[in-house]
Design a protein around this nucleic acid. Structure first.
Lengths: 260, 260
DNA sequence: GATTGCTGTCCGATATACCAGACAAAACCT
DNA sequence: AGGTTTTGTCTGGTATATCGGACAGCAATC
């Protein structure tokens, strides 16, 4: 899935055709990965697609409201229809809806930042979050996505996989933490396997040096990890404080799980 | 903008082919309109598309996470990817973001239900809402969409259009109110034209007999109505109460507008 | 002001995605 | 049970959507 489409494309010449729908999905994934509006003229290179195709696709998707093009510098991004459609998912998905209100309740009760997370291919996505009341916030925005090795939730979300599957899923760049330290893949795999069946997983100092993450699984009908809830805490909370928070968190996880 | 181009399309023959991307967009619109998961097997009839095409499209979209298929009875609905993509829109769209927090502020300040609305083809969509503190709530859910003639916001959102455009946009069934009364299209057009340039529009007893709607426009750079904010109030608030609410609402509208 | 590069639009050829229809399996009837 | 309908999968042929490339309009550079 990486962008390999360099010069050598001339060799095969003919067989480069692709369905419109596939181009569309690639485009969506690319925009989501970039996280900011992209100039239409840059898309053909970025996606390895012909210019005429891209312009046509963008035109159709814009008319449908799935994308929006900013008037002045012709940058595309997700449109209102995508938002409205996505809201349906949120409203109708029992797990997400219950998890979100649980996250809010947790944060209001404890004053700490909590998040509801799911696996999205090779990223951990934040479905919902509620900021804590601490003066210094350590929170992420809804919709942001992290490399899995950065978080405690990530270890839980991969806990049902085999080492081979994990190795296949994790890209080399995912192992690089924000401060440039590199996570050892073998150690990471061991941590994921160890997370299986655990009621809570804690990571300290991964995303930054001054926070820690407490995550619990939300289990589906067959015991699989559907999602996680986590607290993002300062690294220096006392053991007593953490013990209380753990208890709340584990209770919430149980409450949302279909399976003990 | 309708697909009228094929003049000679002989009555029966093969001219029924359509692009995958168009099928996909139709499918999305249909699911959104239905508002609940739909059985895959029903889609071909509902969309007028060949079965093999639908099954293929659903497969691809499901793999990409744009749709989800419930395991037991094979119903499709919007998937997590749609939600995550849509969140990007929410996060990055300045108007929506500012409007949403304004709506929350308005509701917290006044205790009334307020909503942020935009035009979505021939529907008025609720982008964000915050319930009031009244014992009896009259609120809609985020993402729900109404026929334009039902609301005060709708009159503002169409106020820049010509009578012909309005006539073209409004479907006959949009004119039927929830209680079966029918809105007169000519009168509605007059109301839309009258809304042009107005700082506030009020409708009473349209969606139901016990509520009224106060809406103000959010104007873009060229004076066009980009969105509206509105209060949903009981029909029997006093004139003094309404005067105060109007003032707040108009102030919020001005604050979010690019243009006086 | 000539040159170069970039952007967006348009058009014809052809590779292929869509469609019709056959088939199997399950569900639903008498 | 036996027949009928519904559901999901698969395959080959053909209408057509995609792609390459040409073109015109701008902008930037020399």
């Amino acid at each position: 899935m990486n962008e390999q489409g360099t010069v050598s494309a001339s060799v095969v010449s003919g067989g480069n055709r692709e369905r419109g729908i596939d181009r569309v999905l690639t485009l969506f994934a690319y925009l989501n990965g970039r996280g900011r509006p992209v100039r239409v003229a840059d898309l053909p290179k970025a996606l390895g697609a012909p210019r005429s195709t891209i312009y046509e696709i963008v035109r159709v998707l814009t008319e449908a409201g799935m994308l929006e093009v900013s008037g002045d510098d012709n940058r595309v991004y997700f449109g209102r229809a995508m938002y409205l459609y996505g809201i349906n998912y949120f409203r109708d998905n029992e797990l997400i809806r219950r998890g979100s209100s649980e996250v809010e309740a947790l944060s209001k009760m404890t004053g700490e930042t909590s998040e509801l997370c799911v696996l999205n291919r090779n990223r951990q996505a934040i479905i919902h979050t509620h900021p804590g009341s601490r003066p210094m916030r350590i929170s992420s925005e809804v919709g942001s996505q992290f490399p899995i090795p950065w978080t405690a939730s990530g270890r839980l979300l991969l806990s049902h996989m085999t080492p081979a599957e994990i190795r296949d899923l994790i890209e080399p760049e995912d192992l690089v933490l924000p401060d440039r330290r590199v996570v050892d893949i073998e150690g990471f795999i061991v941590e994921c396997l160890a997370a299986r069946g655990k009621s809570i997983v804690i990571t300290r100092g991964l995303i930054n040096s001054f926070s820690q993450c407490l995550a619990v699984p939300i289990l589906g009908m067959h015991g699989e990890v559907q999602a996680t809830i986590c607290f993002v805490l300062p690294i220096d909370v006392t053991d007593e404080q953490r013990a209380v928070l753990q208890e709340h968190l584990i209770a919430s996880g149980r409450k949302l799980s279909m399976h003990e």
